[in-house]
């Protein structure tokens, strides 16, 4: 069974991101019921929205939160400058080549480094997601103009039954 439980197409600003978080909390609880991993699942969406807001070359995003069988699938699509699009793809490819231990080590290394990216990013978002979902992260980029790409990030995660609360 497949159903989109939240689909948003439009402008992404800080205010919209906050409203989407509120909506996700409400909708996730209604559709998935009380679960101990609910915040982790919402946290994945939050990281993807953060990335899209930070590296968007326009103001719009397509964001879908979907249940597909026993999987939760989060997809976000936004335009980005070439350098940002390629950085995203490189980060996801690098994670795909890592073992779980290497992901944890990279996460710890990144956390203890002092610097932030020029756009305020900690460089932890995708690593944080990977700690939760393993390698179920995909990033596809396709050229729109010389210096602009369409980026599609998809994260899928199993919804274990034992995280449901009575």
């Amino acid at each position: 069974m497949e159903k989109n439980i939240l689909e948003y197409k439009g402008q992404l600003s800080s205010e919209v991101r906050i409203q989407l978080l509120d909506l996700l909390q409400c909708i996730a609880l209604c559709n998935l019921g009380p679960r101990s991993d609910l915040k982790k699942l919402i946290g994945i969406a939050l990281e993807l929205l953060d990335n899209a807001e930070r590296y968007n070359s326009s103001t719009d995003v397509d964001f879908i939160w979907r249940i597909d069988g026993d999987q939760l699938v989060v997809t976000i699509r936004n335009k980005a400058k070439s350098a940002d699009a390629h950085r995203l793809q490189k980060a996801v490819s690098r994670i795909a080549a890592m073992t779980p231990e290497e992901i944890t080590d990279a996460f710890k290394r990144q956390m203890t480094e002092e610097g932030y990216g020029e756009k305020g990013g900690a460089g932890l978002g995708m690593l944080q997601i990977a700690r939760r979902v393993g390698k179920n992260i995909r990033a596809e980029i396709s050229p729109l103009h010389t210096d602009e790409f369409l980026c599609t990030s998809t994260v899928s995660t199993h919804l274990p039954a034992d995280r449901k609360r009575a």
């Binding site: 946290g43 939050l46 990281e47 990144q110 932030y116 900690a122 978002g125 944080q128």
Partner: peptide, 14 residues
């Protein structure tokens, strides 16, 4: 902190 993003995770570490 009910929710925080990874950027906050790093800042709180500091």
């Amino acid at each position: 902190l009910p929710y925080f993003n990874s950027s906050s995770l790093k800042a709180l570490y500091q």
